[in-house]
C-alpha cells in the first residue's frame, strides 16, 4: 500500500467561499469540483460517480425543457437534474 497524495484540503469540511454551483455553468464551460453538499445518500452517489474534490468536469448542455443537465466527468457522459447539480460546488478551472 502506498500513500496517495490528495488535492489540498480534500478531506476538510471547511471550503473556500469563491465557488459557484454546477447548475450555474453555461454549455461548454469547464470547472473543477470543490465539494458536494447534499444529503448523505445523494452525496455518496455523486461522489461515487466521480464528483470528488479537484475533478475537472465539462458542462455539455441542457435538455430542451431546461432540465436535466448533460455533464462530462472523468471521460464519460452523465445526465443529472438541476436540483442535484446545485449541490455540486465548483470553481473556474
Amino acid at each position: 500500500m502506498t500513500e496517495i497524495p490528495l488535492p489540498d484540503g480534500a478531506l476538510l469540511r471547511e471550503r473556500p467561499a469563491d465557488h459557484t454551483t454546477l447548475a450555474d455553468l453555461r454549455p461548454g464551460d469547464s470547472a473543477v469540483v470543490c465539494c458536494v453538499r447534499q444529503g448523505e445518500n445523494k452525496r455518496r452517489r455523486l461522489l461515487e460517480m466521480g464528483f470528488v474534490s479537484g475533478t475537472t468536469l465539462r458542462f455539455v448542455g441542457v435538455a430542451p425543457l431546461g432540465d436535466p443537465l448533460h455533464v462530462e466527468v472523468r471521460g464519460y457522459q452523465l445526465s443529472l437534474r438541476r436540483a442535484d447539480a446545485r449541490g455540486i460546488l465548483v470553481r473556474a478551472s
Partner: peptide
C-alpha cells in the same frame, strides 16, 4: 481529526484510480 467521513472513501479511491 476534521476528516469528512462521507467523502473519505471516494476521495482516496478516485485518487488511486486516477493514478
Amino acid at each position: 481529526a476534521s476528516i469528512d467521513r462521507e467523502a473519505l472513501e471516494s476521495e482516496f479511491r478516485y485518487a488511486l484510480c486516477e493514478g
